[in-house]
């Protein structure tokens, strides 16, 4: 950061229109997160491929057609999709220098994220009772690994955004916080993208 940019951040005056891109650190962080998304795309693709290869190996357990509960999946999908919208509304609030709007919408995103996780845990408990377990069959292992990895990413995301909300609540908005919120929202959209593939490839294709 140049001296001029540092001074501006300290005075926390009106930030420029796209505050996340106003500093070299900010531009680096955004690019870094996009690159990370590229890497995670390939990683999740490997878990998807493994799932597709093994989803027929249910052994004594239920098949995909018998097992998946579409209404619950529809609700989960709605929750995550809405949370993606609320996170972008949060970014828009940041661009509009409306920090109350930003904190509100990111807060809603966190709540929706926790609801998604709660629903997903409930769903998994149901599946275990139906005989679909992690160690019971190759299908089970592949299913829970793919969905579990996604869930772990959701958990990391809600904790991350919560931490950022605490920071901005205590210190106020600045040129430092802007790229952090923008990157977190990119990350959040990405896990929604993964969910789009999950509900399509795992649940919907499982019912066909």
């Amino acid at each position: 950061m140049s001296t001029a940019e540092l001074e501006q951040a300290k005075t926390s005056a009106k930030l420029p229109p796209h505050p996340e891109r106003a500093t070299m650190e900010g531009r680096n962080k955004i690019l870094g997160l996009w690159l990370f998304i590229g890497a995670e795309t390939v990683m999740f693709a490997c878990f998807f491929g493994t799932y597709l290869a093994l989803k027929g190996s249910n052994l004594d357990g239920p098949t995909t057609q018998e097992l998946y509960q579409i209404p619950m999946v529809a609700i989960s999908t709605l929750i995550l999709l809405v949370s993606s919208l609320t996170s972008v509304l949060g970014v828009l609030g940041m661009h509009q220098n409306n920090y109350k709007k930003m904190m509100l919408w990111f807060g809603v995103t966190v709540l929706l994220g926790f609801s998604f996780l709660g629903l997903e845990i409930y769903e998994f408990v149901e599946y275990v009772h139906a005989g679909h377990t992690f160690a019971g069959s190759a299908f089970g292992s592949a299913f829970y690994t793919l969905l579990g990895t996604h869930g772990a990413h959701v958990l990391f995301g809600v904790l991350w955004i919560s931490g950022l909300l605490v920071q901005v609540w205590r210190r106020g908005m600045s040129l430092d916080m802007a790229p952090k919120f923008f990157s977190a929202s990119l990350y959040w959209h990405f896990i929604d993208v993964i969910w789009v593939f999950i509900f399509t490839v795992v649940y919907l294709m499982g019912k066909v």
Partner: peptide
Amino acid sequence: IFTGLLFGVICVVAL
């Protein structure tokens, strides 16, 4: 991103 998607698709198809 598109390169990542391409390699991802190749992985899925291969597996």
